[in-house]
C-alpha cells in the first residue's frame, strides 16, 4: 500500500582522504546496529572493514577527510562521478579539519620543517573541505561524527525521510541536559554558542569549554563571541586560537582567526587571509 518498501539495498561506499580514520570507525562503533545495518545496506567499498572493493557506482558514498594532495583531488572527482548521493562525514571533510590550519602558513616552510626530503612529499598548498571541489549532498559534522547522528542518517536513508540533524547551538542541547554554563559560571571560554550541536554538549558536561568540533552553526556570530573572550581577559591571538581547531577553516571561524590571530606558524597579529587553491578542476 505504501510505496517503496521493497527497493533493492542501497549500495554504500566509504572513502577516505586526509583524516584520522575516526569517523569511519564510528560506523564500526555502531556495535548494536552494525549487523542489522549491513543486512539492509550493501557496503560495497569500505577498505577499513572489508577486503571487497568497488569503485562504484554508489547510491551513497560517505567521504571522510580533507582534500590535501593531488591524488585526493583526482579521487574526489572520480567518487563524485560514481555517487548518486555524496555525504561528507566529519570535520576534515566538511570543514578541512585540523590540517586546514596550515592554510594560513607558508606551505613550503611547513613541509620542510617536518620532512627531511620535502621534495618527495606531494601535497597541495592547502587542505580544504570536499565542498570546495565537488557538490556535496549532505554532511555529518563532528570530530568525530556522532554515532547517534550516523544511525539517524542511516535510518532516514532506509525509511526515505530527511535525517533529523538539528543545526542549533550546542547551548540548546547543553541547557536541555541541565548543564550549567561554564562560560558564565566559571569564566571558561566556550565555543558552544556558535557551534552546531550533535555531540550532546559533551565538553561542558566535562567541566570544560566546547572546542567547536562540530563547526559553526547556522549564522554563527563568531566575531561577537571572540570579542567576549577578549573582554574576559584573553589576548586576541589566544581568543583566535580557540577557534583555530578542527573546524577553524569554516568561514565564520576562519574570519575570526584572520582578524584576531592564532593560526599556527603565523606570528600573532600578522595573520593574513588563508591561502586558497581556488577550484582547479571544474569547481563545485
Amino acid at each position: 500500500m505504501v510505496r517503496a518498501t521493497s527497493t533493492p539495498r542501497p549500495r554504500l561506499g566509504v572513502v577516505k582522504l586526509a583524516s584520522c580514520d575516526g569517523c569511519q570507525l564510528m560506523l564500526l562503533n555502531l556495535e548494536d546496529a552494525l549487523l542489522s545495518v549491513a543486512e539492509r545496506i550493501d557496503i560495497v567499498e569500505f577498505p577499513e572493514a572489508t577486503s571487497h572493493r568497488s569503485s562504484g557506482p554508489y547510491d551513497v558514498v560517505l567521504v571522510e577527510g580533507a582534500v590535501s594532495t593531488p591524488e585526493q583531488l583526482e579521487t574526489i572527482h572520480a567518487v563524485r562521478r560514481e555517487a548518486k548521493v555524496l555525504v561528507t562525514i566529519g570535520a576534515c571533510a566538511t570543514a578541512g579539519g585540523i590540517q586546514a590550519m596550515r592554510n594560513w602558513a607558508n606551505h613550503d616552510a611547513f613541509r620542510a620543517a617536518v620532512y627531511a626530503h620535502p621534495e618527495y612529499v606531494e601535497s597541495l598548498a592547502t587542505a580544504q573541505p570536499v565542498s570546495d571541489y565537488v557538490k556535496v549532498d549532505g554532511e555529518l559534522r563532528g570530530c568525530p561524527i556522532n554515532g547517534d547522528q550516523l544511525l539517524e542518517f542511516v535510518t532516514a536513508l532506509l525509511t526515505g525521510r530527511r535525517a533529523n540533524l538539528p543545526d542549533e547551538a550546542v547551548c540548546a542541547a547543553c541547557k536541555r541536559a541541565g548543564r550549567v554554563c561554564v562560560m558564565v559560571s566559571q569564566g571558561i571560554p566556550c565555543l558552544g554558542p556558535v557551534t552546531m550541536t550533535g555531540c550532546g554538549a559533551l565538553c561542558p558536561g566535562f567541566d570544560r569549554g566546547c572546542y567547536g568540533c562540530f563547526g559553526p552553526r547556522e549564522q554563527a556570530n563568531a566575531a561577537s563571541l571572540g570579542r567576549q573572550f577578549v573582554a574576559m581577559g584573553e589576548a586576541p591571538a589566544e581568543a583566535g586560537r580557540l577557534f583555530a581547531g578542527f573546524t577553524g577553516y569554516a568561514p565564520p571561524f576562519r574570519d575570526v582567526i584572520t582578524e584576531f590571530g592564532g593560526a599556527p606558524g603565523v606570528p600573532a597579529g600578522h595573520a593574513p587571509s588563508p591561502a586558497s587553491t581556488g577550484t582547479p578542476s571544474g569547481g563545485k
Binding site: S68, I98, A105, S123
Partner: peptide, 15 residues
C-alpha cells in the same frame, strides 16, 4: 599513501 598532515607544525605556538 596517507596524506601528510603536518601535526608537528600545527602544534607549535599552542597551549
Amino acid at each position: 599513501f596517507e596524506a601528510p598532515r603536518y601535526f608537528e607544525q600545527l602544534v607549535v605556538g599552542r597551549h
